[in-house]
Design a protein around this nucleic acid. Sequence first.
DNA 1: AGAGAGCCTGTGATCGCTCTCAGCCATGGT
DNA 2: ACCATGGCTGAGAGCGATCACAGGCTCTCT
Lengths: 218, 218
Amino acid sequence: MRLLVVEDEARLGKALQRGLQAEGFVVDVAADGLTGLELARHGGYDAMILDVMLPGLSGYRVVRQLRAEERWLPVLMLSAKDGEYDQADGLDCGADDYLTKPFSYVVLLARLRALLRRGAPQRPAVLTAGDLSLDPARRRVTLAGAEVVLTAREFALLEYLLRRSGAVVSKTELLDHVWDDSIETAPNTVEVYIGYLRRKIGRERLETVRGAGYRLAG
Amino acid sequence: MRLLVVEDEARLGKALQRGLQAEGFVVDVAADGLTGLELARHGGYDAMILDVMLPGLSGYRVVRQLRAEERWLPVLMLSAKDGEYDQADGLDCGADDYLTKPFSYVVLLARLRALLRRGAPQRPAVLTAGDLSLDPARRRVTLAGAEVVLTAREFALLEYLLRRSGAVVSKTELLDHVWDDSIETAPNTVEVYIGYLRRKIGRERLETVRGAGYRLAG
DNA sequence: AGAGAGCCTGTGATCGCTCTCAGCCATGGT
DNA sequence: ACCATGGCTGAGAGCGATCACAGGCTCTCT
């Protein structure tokens, strides 16, 4: 784990660096806001410990700037100010945690661990096959970059086919998984919706396997 | 946003509930560790405020159990113990933040906001989508720089949609997270409020996905 | 107590989606 | 080449989702 410590008070900076290195972290130290910001931008750190009172650029500004640039590395703020509004301001600027000096080293470590634990959020998978892609969360389908508008049923059908992309899927299987009341629904319904899909995503991508079902080009 | 408060001291629990509801949160309160754990498992909350000293099952155990079950909802711990090792223990059990009683309400709110931010896929202090921006801390919404005045419910709805910006959000999900008594409230209510929002922020920004829900232009 | 704001429900109209039906077409076996 | 089987498609009926409007209820502030 790589950490960036931005702290102008040399002694504290050194102490932090040594202590954190002893815990197995790789630690760089910057002594002012501007170099801190620059390093945070391009240093590839896993988290940042940021003093508020800095020469040049305050800690508040550093976080705000980082967040404005859509950089989301975890930031733990350090400050001598312990007023409730100072703390709230720091957090509302985009910091993830806030510690007031003097702080306990044990607490700093625990909070740092908590921050690192909450790593990058996993993004939901996007299903693709060739130039076709489907995003289940956004309910969006694109074909060679262009958006394709599908109805709810068409979407559900395509999603199922994409999950089995390349395999032959029978009409009964589709009725079971894409339609609610598979007994009541005629197999012809599937054929109809396959037809709709073909019109929207292109005929050649969705193959008929006579007597067996359908196959989406994988 | 749905919150779960687990606190056995009835007066503090009530006070928290009232205060947080005034901020637009949907808040449930549990008075002991076991019901708290059960609710956290299946309640679909966005975050949890958890007292350490609880009858039956301590707060430490509740978090540990939740994490063991791979449930990652953000947890803010409350405790009267302010020893550095108590704090470190709480965080190392899997809590995301730790506040010692007595705490400042302003700080609690700021830390809660930071926690919710961190849980979201993206985590700016101010939520934006295009020329629309919403500041949870200041309760302000601006559209292309001009302030938009929203009622409490409209604000909560927009905030939730913004946090899921780009994704399709179903009416039931909205009822769960933005409304208190989701069973008692008709889906039509959501439709009505979507209508209000559209009038205020512009029709084109808030798309209907028929049969699925609504999507805020991301 | 009264006024006003905000919140929710009920109703009716509209419109898009879903599915059925009936007939046509394609395929492959004889 | 012919037939049987299975697949495809255009048209349309019905239904369910969505939306807007209006009215009633409940709080809060004066």
